[in-house]
Structures are given as structure tokens and as C-alpha cells.
Design a protein around this nucleic acid. Structure first.
Lengths: 351, 351
DNA sequence: GGCTGTTGTGCAATCGATTGCAATTTGCTG
DNA sequence: CAGCAAATTGCAATCGATTGCACAACAGCC
């Protein structure tokens, strides 16, 4: 009975010891050979590598990470608010997730995507405490500044997309929301709009800053905001809220929606009223998501540096993990992209 | 010198042995206590759990998984084609990712999100071979039927979103694309459209089936397709392709775009030509992404069961992992959602 | 008091790798 | 051919948990 190499058992995955047996060497040698260590002779190394390829064996990276203590996984956390699970549908999020995926892959990291209840933000910490991820990237700071501060003070590697706030212990990356809000105000005024409305939940720091920038710039020009409605980043809510807002104030001629999603929803509501965009009402969004330029009408919006933002967040996190000290808040530049949804008003037929 | 419990060192994460020392018991006991084993007395168990909470210690789930051999991570793989990295921008994908995230979280699994080159589909296998994930969920089968077959034959736990194909060894979940294409044809014909065009890359199995269903239904009514253009799922390509198509065939009165994204792009191109949707040209999309109903005009489209699809994929994969035999292909029902973009034609002024 | 039966804990092996150090082989030199 | 350095390879400990089995403590019973 000839003792042949064990046949590749399809139910159990091959492991280093098996390959070592096949190659007639020890596991140490296999480990070193596959890692390309110069301690192993070129002959042996190649023989083992060929064998590994042949049996398509891959070192178990979980075990590797456990032993070596380094982790190559980063958790990207998308919080959702109670009863608003759909908030995952915001196209801004997807742009951001795509950017993060690219930036992480480029640097050899895996991405663990996790949705968690915004009320239990610190549950995200479990991913790091439990050794699943080396660090945390959180999209949006929501209403939980204090929790985030607490997490950072515990020494949790953490980067948050959001606004720079006073007394902030954690690291943020975000667009310049004050400037963004300002740009919108100046633009709408330049287009001759005076009866303006704002759409967005100022309970969120980013939105609050957009709002502050917006109203500050208006005030400088002596214009007062006509209407303001708090609304989550959901297309259905946006539509309803815009409709309700028109009930109270039918003669609005400009809307600043704090996200492109809301802007699109608002345009839908305006159309239902028979109001034309931009002829009757100018609409400006925020984010410049990919679809913004292809909407009907193409959306004027504030461009958030989504792709760069993703890269910067990853870099900040990796710097933290490397033990470097990082600047607390990175505020990225922002600019207005003018498209049709806010073109200068034409006289309205019959008005 | 009193030997007090070691102070919580902020730089190194606490581990089971540390907690054991604090509690004055062995690591075994801590392990059992935290796992809620009945072997441990209620007293001890509670004392240890309290201590763990107090020091916010979490068991290292990587080590746990290594030891116990079970993995609670599933890799979701989004392939991209060369030079089309942007394909991540398709809102259909995000709906699907959201659905998968929900379904996985609900069952206590983590989701590893990975973008890979469609040409190296089997690189995804590394995630499983390397022990990072228990199984693979792949979104789209692209042009790689054979590679997928090979992966499945190797025994890789795998579920693919896509079309049911002949000689298929792997497990798919998808909408009924033949039926979907049919529904669109019947609808457009019912709206009195006769000069029809198709937009989509029939190199992809799903699109090919939509196309087959579409043309088959047309033929039954004696109508012939006027135009057909191959185009990837990218908004910019969609726009250009639609424009080029209008150059060759300006009197098109109906368009079937094989995704909502392409439909939106097509509408943009039509508008640029001064053509009205739906008055001059009816446009029908595919997917029914969240924004479809809020586009301008609201999009008629074929509803893909995205959320159910995600759930079914996860269930199929977990069944495979549990060693159950699963049906090879699940084809989910599909239906047409009529909205404004394909409303019945009104006589065109001056025609 | 000795014996058996519960209960509660700890020892040590194990999961699948990596790596310091020791051991073996080979090649050279004198 | 002995002696020593260099080049390879293997042993065994380790990463942070889990778990079968042995063991200790204590109660109850005759």
C-alpha cells in the first residue's frame, strides 16, 4: 500500500502543515518560503510556491494576524437613526463608501461595513475591542458629540466624517460647511432670489453649519430667511416637507436643500404644485453626488470632496494606528457647481 | 507595598488573562462565565461579567473564531470592469448592499465589502481560502460564467446575483429578466409606441435575457426593434450613447434602458435634443431604485426585488455553509411599475 | 470517619499561523 | 582531513481565546 500524498480533501481547507507534508519540509519552511524570506533557498522557495499555487492554498490571514498582532481590517460604520433605516439610501453615502473602499484597498486593507443604531454609537467600539478591526471610520457624527469624545479618550482609533466642533477630542474630516452655506446664499442672491427657504435638520452639526453660513451671508445682504424646515435625509420626507412648506409660503422663489437627495425630492414636490424649476423656484442642493449633474434639471449644488475625503480619512486613521499625532480636524475646501436648477429667473408668464 | 490590581493600561487592550487576574480566577473560568456556561456558579459569573463591563473588555472574536473554527463574516464582492471603476456608482448596487447588510446583521454576521477586478474574479476566493470570510456573495456574474463554475466546483461557498444560465454549477438569485423584458415590451406597445430602441450591454447575462424577453414579445406583435446600442452601466456612457443613437434614428418614440441609471441618462440626452419625455419619447428603466419614483419625470421601470433578493442570497449562502443542498437558481418575480416617463403619447404639436 | 456524588475550577491541548534560536548540512581553508 | 563559517531547516513557544478531562471541595449518608 503506497503512502501517497493525501488527496486534496474538498471538505476541509488545506493548511500549512498539509502543504509542508506534501513538500517534505516543516511548516516553518513553508511559512518562510511563502513569505519570501531570504532564509530559504531559492529552490525550496519556488518549489513550495508552485505547490501552493497548484493546490490553491492561501495562508490563513486570520491566524497570521492573530500571531503577528497587526490587523488589516478597518471598520466603516454607517449609523442610522431610529425609524430611519432607509437613510442608507442616500447617494452621498455610497459615494463615500466607494471612496473609502478604493482608498483602503489601495493600501492593502479590508473594509468591514457595518450599520449601527446611532443611539448605540459606542457599540461600534466592540469591533475594535473584539479585535475584528484595527480602527473605526464613522460616517457622520449625528447628535453624539459626547459619545464620540468618550470613545476617542478611551484611545480608540477613530476618524469621523463631519463638522469641526468646539471641545472635540476625536478626529474629523469634512467639507467646509460654513463656506458651503455662504456660497449658496451668495449664488441665490446673485440670481435675484429673495424669498428663500432652507431644508435640513440643523440638529446635525454639518447641517447646522451650512445653515449658519447661509443665514450669515443672507443677513450681510439684508435678506431674511422666509422659511426653514427640519427634515431628515430621506427622499419621502423631503417631498412631504417641501409640500407642507409651500402650503405655508407659496411664493418662495429659492430653496437651499442641505443634500442633493433633499433637493431632488424638493424638485419633485415643486413640480407637483405646477411650479417650474428654475423659472419659478431655484433649487440648490449639497454634495454633488454623481447623479446631480444628470438630474432634470441638472442640479446646482455644493461640491463635497467625496473622493479626497475618503482618502484623507483613511490616511488620518492609518496615521493614528502608526502612533503619529494627527491634526484634530481637517476641513476640506468646497465649491459651488452651477447648473440649471438655479439659473437666473425668467419673468413668469402671467405674473 | 500592596499588590493592587494592574491599572488599565490604555495602550494595550486588555485580554482574558488580565481579567482573570483581576477576578482572581483562571482564564477558563472567565471564558465560561462570559459565554454564560452553566458550569460556572451564578455568583462568579456575575462578578466576572460586571468586571468585564467595567473595564469594557470584549472577547477577541478573531481568536474565538480561530479556535472554534466557525466564521461569522461574509464577503460581499462588487466586481468592476477595467476602466469602469465608477460602476460602483450604480444606485442598484447600493440598494443591494443595504439589503445584504440588513440581512447579514440580522443573522449575526459581519459583512466584508470588497471591490475586485472582474477579470480576476477568483481573487475573491482568496477571502475564503485565507479564512477571512466563510462565504462569498457576488453581485453580478458579468462575463465569467466559467470562472464561477470553477469556483463552485472547488467547493467554495458562493451565491451570485444574476441570471439563471445553462450548465450552471453555482448558485444564483435574481429577478426574472425574461419576464421583465416582456413586460416592458407589452407596456410600450400598449402605449402606442412602435419605433423602439434598446440600451444595454447584452454581453451580460441579465441584460441579454431582458433583451430576449423584450424582442420576443415585440416579435409576437409583429413589431421590430429599431435600434440597439451596447453600453455599460455608467451614466456618462448612457448619455453619449443615447445621443449617438438619436443621430442615427431621430424618430424613436420609445426606449427600454436596461437599468434605471441608464434610463435617467437617456432622459438627459433626450432633453438636450429638445425631445420631451414622455410626450415625444417614452422611456422605461429597470430596477426601480429608490430615486426612480422621484426622478423628473418619475420613471416607469421594472421592479427588481432588491430587498428580498438580499435576504434570499444570504439564506442560500448560510444554507450552503450549514451543509444543506440548495436549489441551484432562484428566480424571483418581477413586475412593472408604471409612472410618468412612459405615459400614453399625446399628439405632438405640429406632427 | 469513609465513601460517593455534586459543583465549581484549573490544567493543558488546540485552532493556524510566525519566528528566535538551535541544529544540521554544506563548502572552504589550511 | 580537521575545523570553522555560512547557508538551510526544524523545534518549540507564542498570539488570544475554548474545552475535555482531571481534580478539589464540600455535602449527605451509612
Amino acid at each position: 500500500m503506497s503512502r501517497r500524498a493525501a488527496p486534496p480533501d474538498p471538505r476541509k481547507r488545506m493548511q500549512m502543515a498539509d502543504l509542508a507534508r506534501l513538500a517534505g519540509v516543516s511548516a516553518s519552511t513553508v511559512s518562510r518560503a511563502l513569505a519570501g524570506s531570504p532564509l530559504i533557498s531559492a529552490d525550496t522557495r519556488e518549489r513550495i510556491q508552485t505547490l501552493a499555487r497548484q493546490f490553491n492554498y492561501t495562508v490563513n490571514s486570520v491566524a497570521t494576524d492573530l500571531r503577528s498582532g497587526v490587523k488589516r481590517t478597518i471598520a466603516v460604520v454607517v449609523p442610522y437613526e431610529q425609524g430611519t433605516r432607509q437613510s442608507f439610501a442616500d447617494p452621498f453615502l455610497h459615494g463615500m463608501i466607494g471612496a473609502l473602499a478604493d482608498a483602503l484597498t489601495e493600501r492593502g486593507y479590508e473594509m468591514l461595513l457595518s450599520r449601527i443604531d446611532a443611539e448605540r454609537l459606542d457599540a461600534a467600539a466592540t469591533l475594535v475591542d473584539g479585535g475584528r478591526a484595527a480602527g473605526l471610520i464613522l460616517i457622520g457624527q449625528w447628535r453624539h458629540h459626547d459619545q464620540l469624545n468618550a470613545m476617542a479618550e478611551r484611545g480608540l482609533p477613530l476618524v469621523v466624517w463631519g463638522a469641526k466642533l468646539p471641545r472635540q477630542q476625536y478626529c474629523t474630516v469634512g467639507g467646509d460647511n460654513l463656506q458651503g452655506g455662504r456660497l449658496v446664499a451668495e449664488h441665490l442672491l446673485a440670481q435675484g432670489r429673495r424669498r428663500l427657504a432652507f431644508l435640513g435638520d440643523t440638529g446635525l452639526p454639518e447641517v447646522a453649519q451650512r445653515f449658519r453660513g447661509f443665514t450669515a451671508a443672507l443677513k450681510e445682504q439684508g435678506v431674511e430667511l422666509k422659511q426653514r424646515a427640519s427634515v431628515p435625509f430621506l427622499v419621502e420626507s423631503g417631498r412631504q416637507t417641501m409640500a407642507a412648506l409651500l402650503d405655508g409660503q407659496p411664493d418662495i422663489d429659492g430653496v437651499f436643500a442641505s443634500s442633493d437627495l433633499l433637493a431632488m425630492a424638493a424638485i419633485g414636490a415643486l413640480r407637483e404644485r405646477g411650479l417650474r424649476v428654475p423659472d419659478d423656484v431655484a433649487v440648490v442642493g449639497y454634495d454633488d453626488v454623481e447623479l446631480a449633474g444628470h438630474f432634470n434639471p441638472p442640479l446646482t449644488t455644493v461640491r463635497q470632496p467625496i473622493h479626497d475625503g475618503g482618502t484623507v480619512m483613511v490616511e488620518q486613521l492609518l496615521a493614528q494606528l502608526a502612533g503619529e499625532t494627527v491634526v484634530r480636524a481637517r476641513v476640506l475646501d468646497t465649491r459651488l457647481v452651477e447648473r440649471e436648477s438655479s439659473r437666473i429667473r425668467r419673468a413668469r408668464a402671467g405674473t
